[in-house]
C-alpha cells in the first residue's frame, strides 16, 4: 500500500501538515499494544505490523523528497531510473559543491552562508515547480524537480556537516 493510503490521505504533494500529524497520532494511538492486550496473538501481530507500516508511511510523507518519490511511484513513475540528469544541472551542482568545498577549506563562514542562502532559494523554487508539476499531473516535470531537489539536498547536508564540525570544534575549545 502507498503511504498516503496507509494514513488515509489523498494522493497529493502539498498535503496539509497538520492533517498528516493528526492522522499519524490517531492511528498510533489506535494501534498501541496497550489497547490490544485482549486480542489473540495473531491479531496482536497484525496490529504491530500495521503500526510499523504507519510509522514508515509517516516518515516518508514528512519529507518533501521521499513524499514526492512515493507520489511518483503511486503514479507508476520510478524517479531514479527516469531521471537522467541534464548536463546543465550537473554543471551547476558541481560548481556549487566546489565553491562550498573551497569555502570550507578556507574557513570562510560568510561564503558558506551566502552559498547556503543561494541553495535555499533554489530549493524553494524547485519545490514550487514540483507543486505545479503535480497539480498539473505533469509527472515528467515533477520527476525533473525531484532530481534537482535530490542534488540540492546533498548540498544542504554538506552545509549541515560544516556547521556541526564548527560546533564540535567550539565544544572542544579549539
Amino acid at each position: 500500500m502507498d503511504p498516503f493510503s496507509t494514513l488515509g490521505l489523498s494522493l497529493r504533494f502539498d498535503l496539509d501538515v497538520a492533517e498528516l500529524e493528526r492522522r499519524y497520532r490517531d492511528l498510533q494511538r489506535a494501534l498501541h499494544p496497550d489497547k490490544h492486550t485482549q486480542a489473540s496473538p495473531s491479531e496482536r501481530r497484525a496490529t504491530l505490523s500495521k503500526a510499523v507500516e504507519v510509522n514508515e508511511a509517516y516518515r516518508v510523507l514528512r519529507d518533501d523528497l521521499s513524499r514526492a518519490s512515493a507520489l511518483l511511484a503511486a503514479h507508476g513513475v520510478n524517479v531514479v531510473s527516469e531521471s537522467k540528469a541534464d548536463p546543465e544541472l550537473l554543471m551547476e551542482v558541481m560548481e556549487l559543491r566546489e565553491a562550498l568545498a573551497e569555502a570550507r577549506a578556507t574557513k570562510n563562514d560568510a561564503a558558506v552562508a551566502t552559498l547556503a542562502a543561494r541553495v535555499k532559494a533554489l530549493e524553494d523554487a524547485t519545490r514550487r515547480a514540483m507543486i505545479e508539476g503535480f497539480a498539473a499531473n505533469d509527472f515528467k516535470k515533477a520527476a525533473l524537480s525531484w532530481t534537482r531537489m535530490r542534488y540540492l539536498r546533498r548540498f544542504v547536508d554538506e552545509v549541515n556537516a560544516i556547521a556541526e564540525e564548527k560546533e564540535n570544534a567550539a565544544a572542544r575549545g579549539v
Binding site: M94, R150, L152
Partner: peptide, 13 residues
C-alpha cells in the same frame, strides 16, 4: 566527463 547519481545526489567530474 560530468556524471551524477540521482539516487544519492553524488556528482563526479
Amino acid at each position: 566527463g560530468l556524471v551524477g547519481a540521482p539516487a544519492c545526489g553524488d556528482v563526479m567530474r
